[in-house]
């Protein structure tokens, strides 16, 4: 089972995660170990990259209107910054004593911290992106709730004008998200829900039209037409709700989802 729930996060973190695990194992197996080479240059490169991430991260926080991101991201940035400091300290200690065990421990601690902090940061950013998609899904849910009160052709035209771009956006974003997921089952559920929504949308519009025509002509069967329309709207809402549920899952929740 994949550890990282999106392909982007996996591609960024996975190679280093493996190397850090290897570092820990090698350190344990080697016990006192060989003399460490001078790590000041690679540590300096990490520090520079961390400075840049902190800058970009702070800009992201400032420009975001997502309260959760604004709350969560600073601690992830602090973690990365502290870990970078650990690496610099380890590097300085190793320069004085290439066999220093505390320095090696600090090196491992720093490497792990960079990995975990970056992982938290990416997760935080990813969750914020997911919330944007969910916001669009909820807009569709709001429109679907309005379908029950549409009783003129003019309102139906306006309803369609409002719903269509929103639905297209959801379709585009969920489709792109589905391709990003490493969890096959979650991805397949999103595809299935999206297909259902695409099938149901024109049928719902048709049922709304039938209802309006019956009411306008004062014909029989308006109750049945309303019932049919409501049923279709609720089927679509269920599919959107399921998409929201799956979008919020990460592989860490997979026990619950299955």
């Amino acid at each position: 089972m994949p550890v990282f729930h999106t392909k982007t996060i996996e591609s960024i973190l996975e190679p280093v995660a493996q190397q850090v695990s290897r570092l820990v194992i090698l350190h344990e197996e080697a016990e006192d170990g060989n003399a460490m080479p001078d790590l000041s240059r690679p540590v300096q490169a990490v520090s520079l990259a961390v400075t840049n991430l902190v800058k970009v991260g702070r800009e992201t926080i400032q420009n975001s209107d997502d309260d959760i991101l604004r709350l969560d991201m600073p601690s992830a940035l602090a973690r990365v910054e502290n870990s970078s400091q650990h690496l610099e300290e380890a590097s300085a200690m190793l320069k004085g004593d290439p066999f220093s065990t505390p320095a090696r421990k600090k090196l491992i601690e720093g490497s792990r911290g960079i990995l975990q902090g970056t992982s938290s940061l990416l997760l935080c950013f990813d969750e914020s992106e997911v919330r944007k998609i969910i916001r669009e899904c909820k807009r569709v849910l709001d429109y679907l709730a309005v379908s029950e009160v549409i009783d003129t052709m003019e309102d139906l035209v306006q309803f369609l004008k409002d719903l269509s771009p929103c639905l297209s956006k959801v379709s585009r974003e969920v489709s792109s998200r589905e391709k990003e997921l490493t969890h096959q089952v979650h991805s397949e559920i999103l595809v299935r829900c999206l297909e259902q929504v695409k099938i149901l949308a024109p049928i719902l519009i048709c049922s709304m039209k039938v209802f309006i025509l019956i009411v306008e002509q004062q014909g029989k069967g308006s109750d049945e037409a309303a019932e049919n329309r409501n049923y279709l709207a609720s089927r679509m809402s269920d599919e959107i709700q399921e998409m929201i549920r799956i979008l919020q899952l990460t592989t860490y929740d997979e026990d619950q989802s299955e």
Partner: peptide, 29 residues
Amino acid sequence: EMILEAANAIMCASSNLVRAANAAQRELI
């Protein structure tokens, strides 16, 4: 996204660092 690029740059730099540290240990095993 810039944040993804920045995170990727850190991971590349960390990868070089950890590889250098691993290389020294591997000689001993």
